[in-house]
């Protein structure tokens, strides 16, 4: 059993997060290897989303949030980085509820590259197409790129969000319960895309669907009540004998 990789892409070292008096993460230590799909499972309010927000430091925008410990991306402490915007562009984020920005489909996907200074139309066109293809949305929107992103259906908007997350060519893609607002067929499409993408990037998949983690993830971490209970290869966590009894109960649907 190899539980520690040599060169983790993302590492949490004793990370605690609290919002005022409420503790959202309690001394979590965790390593996420490169080019894998890393599943994070756990019941609601167990700290999964907070964990993601620490990676790209959008936790900074949460009022009253306090972060202790170290979060390393590519071996570098995120709080030591001079350019946080650069960090955020290295990481793609997809949150549970689809958010189409009130811009055209094209401008939605071109937003991040433009903010980063890319203005050449041909480069943008190519990038937008690639991202939309990766998100399995290209065929549905290629003829109506000027439609408002907010006018797409929920499932389409979620794929638009994924396309946007890919638009700044991230090395890490984080997805937070992406399938909540998406129909099963689209979910399957996106899952296929993820398996494809893992050749190019590290994928962190937070999910409340235990079976989804089982299908996709190479490695799974189980969070409960702000605490990391267990990390391990998927087949081990989902086996008859995970390291912790609690994991077994959760995976079998006994609580959560």
């Amino acid at each position: 059993m190899v539980t520690d990789s040599v060169d983790p892409h993302i590492a949490f070292r004793n990370v605690s997060v609290s919002y005022g008096r409420k503790v959202a993460l309690d001394r979590v230590t965790l390593e996420i290897p490169r080019h894998e799909i890393f599943g994070i499972i756990g019941p609601a309010n167990s700290g999964k989303t907070t964990l993601l927000k620490c990676i790209n430091r959008t936790i900074d925008f949460a009022p009253l949030a306090r972060v202790d410990g170290q979060v390393l991306v590519g071996g570098e402490d995120v709080y030591q980085m001079a350019n946080v915007f650069e960090l955020r562009r290295r990481i793609g984020m997809v949150f549970p509820l689809p958010v189409g920005l009130p811009l055209s489909v094209y401008d939605n996907v071109a937003y991040a590259p433009r903010m980063a200074g890319l203005t050449r139309r041909d480069e943008l066109d190519a990038l937008v197409e690639t991202c939309l293809r990766h998100a399995a949305l290209w065929d549905e929107v290629k003829d109506r790129m000027q439609l408002l992103g907010t006018r797409l259906s929920g499932g389409q908007q979620q794929r638009l969000t994924i396309a946007r997350a890919l638009s700044h060519r991230p090395e890490i893609l984080c997805l937070d319960e992406f399938s909540i607002a998406v129909d099963p067929v689209t979910t399957m499409k996106i899952e296929d895309v993820l398996l494809d993408l893992k050749q190019q990037m590290t994928i962190v998949l937070v999910t409340n669907l235990v079976q989804q983690a089982r299908r996709l993830a190479d490695r799974v971490a189980f969070l409960n009540n702000a605490t990391l209970i267990e990390v391990g290869p998927t087949e081990h966590v989902f086996s008859e004998h995970p390291a912790e009894r609690l994991t077994f109960d959760y995976v079998r649907g006994h609580f959560g």
């Binding site: 960090l87 955020r88 984020m93 958010v99 920005l101 997350a165």
Partner: peptide, 15 residues
């Protein structure tokens, strides 16, 4: 203006 719009932009590295 919904907060989710802002968060979406921040997540893409917009200041």
């Amino acid at each position: 203006v919904p907060q989710s719009f802002r968060e979406a932009c921040w997540n893409m590295g917009a200041s």
